[in-house]
Amino acid sequence: MESPLLQYLFRLGDDSLILGHRLSEWCSRAPMLEEDLALANMALDHIGRAKMLLEYAASFEAMGHSADDLAFGRDERHYYNLLITEVPNGDFAVTMVRMFIFSAFDVLRLEELSTSHDEMLAGIAQKGVKESRYHRRHAADWIWRLGKGTDESRRRVQRALHTIWPFTDEMFDMDDTERVLIEEGIGCDLHTLREIWKKDVSEVISNAGLTLPEDGYMHRGGRNGVHTEALGHIISEMNYGYELMLS
């Protein structure tokens, strides 16, 4: 079993790696060029963050692996991202709702991690929080526009909220790995963030004239490497180029 910090770096790194992958799938497919730029920007931020986290993990692991080996050399059961990051992009509304809901969470998590006793992690979080604040704002602006736009956009963004909501509970799950790190002043206590997150999300959604979904069945499992069917497709595509360069 990996050390708690290594496991934690995988979790954070995989969140960014998989979300960055999903965002990069929009390349040449956005509703307007300005949004193609923004989606690529957010993808670059997350893939860049994954690279830093996995480079740190690789140095920490000291097994001679590179960040690429860690990013692209694992099988389905050894990715530890939150399931919300792997949900298929769907339409623009699903992508933006996921981006808003995740980024609102990510900003809070990164603010906490900015003061982590682990200096490297704190440094990565300090850079990341600036990016994620922008992601949150950009996506929140879209929630508002889609909510206040046409009947069709309102219908789509409301439907997207229902698609994404069952993946929100998992964001706040904590296990022994995380509890050990909180005690050491390295990790972030997610329970304290939940109410702040809920307030932020509720406000943005209600300002847009939309309804917060009821809590129903909640998906979980990513932190233990148990994913949705979508992940296998992501990694069989994502790991292709890496495998090519090994052959």
């Binding site: 992958h21 990069s24 799938e25 390349c27 040449s28 497919r29 060029l33 193609d36 730029l37 690529a40 920007n41 993808a43 670059l44 893939i47 860049g48 994954a50 690279k51 996995l54 960040a67 690429d68 990013a71 692209f72 595509e237 994502m238 292709y240 180029g241 890496y242 090519l244 360069m245």
Partner: peptide
Amino acid sequence: GNWVTRASSLRAKLILLAKIQDEC
């Protein structure tokens, strides 16, 4: 864009995506 999701390394993916973003 056909190759962004299949790039050979994190570095190659970042550079390719940044390049396509420039073109946009």
